[in-house]
């Protein structure tokens, strides 16, 4: 079944308020964490300024880093909760390549992003490619949270014990914490680009969906939503 543009769309509600809260908390905390983290890793020349006007800059930025870190960890916990308690589009079974249908969809996504096909898959939830990357990001976020807690409270017996078992000495944890930071920078660049690119090339309006929680679905497809997802269309 192939349909031609222009066509009518209806708005379907996909992303729950909790998920959007998670998304924006994670986005803003990651942004602050990266900026302050880069300063903490290698403070640019602030020595002259600090001599001129005492401002407690490293301590302040560290404070922001830790505060943002707590928001980041809370956001991850919320997402973890949604893995089990979220709506069907928010559960891993919907966006990980774990069954035949999802694997097929993954190949389709990759072809779409490589300009090998113009057929966009109208899918209610995450595309499988995005879902897989988000899941990897979630795991990296957990590692960041754990190394961060280990570096912040290395003397708390329980954290010290877990951290030592998982990462070794604080220096090794610090290396993991720093290296993974680049993955987050990398992710943000690609994520923003792909989101904007999708707004140009696909009709779902995913950027406004990040605020409103809705997606645009072709209205002329009189079929169940499960079927709707599978149907490609041509421009």
């Amino acid at each position: 079944m192939v349909r031609k543009e222009p066509r009518l769309y209806y708005r379907v509600f996909v992303w729950s308020g909790t998920l959007r809260l998670f998304h924006w908390t994670l986005a803003f905390s990651t942004f602050i964490l990266i900026l302050t983290g880069i300063y903490i890793h290698y403070p640019p020349i602030t020595t002259k300024w600090a001599e001129f006007k005492p401002q407690y800059i490293m301590a302040t930025l560290r404070y922001w880093h830790f505060t943002a870190g707590y928001f980041f960890i809370c956001a991850l916990l919320v997402r973890f909760y949604l893995f089990f308690a979220g709506n069907r589009y928010e559960r891993p079974t919907d966006f990980l390549p774990i069954n035949k249908r999802n694997l097929k969809s993954l190949v389709y996504n990759i072809k779409f992003y490589l300009y090998l096909t113009d057929e966009h898959e109208c899918r209610m939830g995450h595309t499988i490619l995005a879902g897989t990357i988000y899941f990897i990001l979630f795991i990296c976020g957990l590692i960041m949270g754990l190394t961060g807690l280990y570096l912040l409270y290395p003397e708390t017996p329980m954290i010290a014990k877990i951290g030592h078992e998982l990462f070794g000495t604080p220096q090794q944890a610090r290396l993991v914490h720093y290296t993974l930071n680049w993955f987050f920078i990398f992710f943000i660049m690609v994520h923003l680009y792909i989101a904007i690119w999708n707004d140009f090339n696909a009709p779902d309006a995913i950027i406004s969906g990040a605020f409103s929680g809705s997606k645009m679905m072709p209205a002329d497809l009189e079929c169940p939503i499960e079927e709707l997802e599978k149907i490609p269309f041509e421009k």
């Binding site: 992003y113 300009y115 290296t179 680049w182 920078i185 990398f186 690609v190 680009y193 690119w197």
Partner: peptide, 23 residues
Amino acid sequence: AEKMGKFAVGGAAAVIAAHAAAG
């Protein structure tokens, strides 16, 4: 680690630019 990270980010920027240009 830093060089590696910068390399990854630089690579991503190049790939993004190439992708957009291809589009």
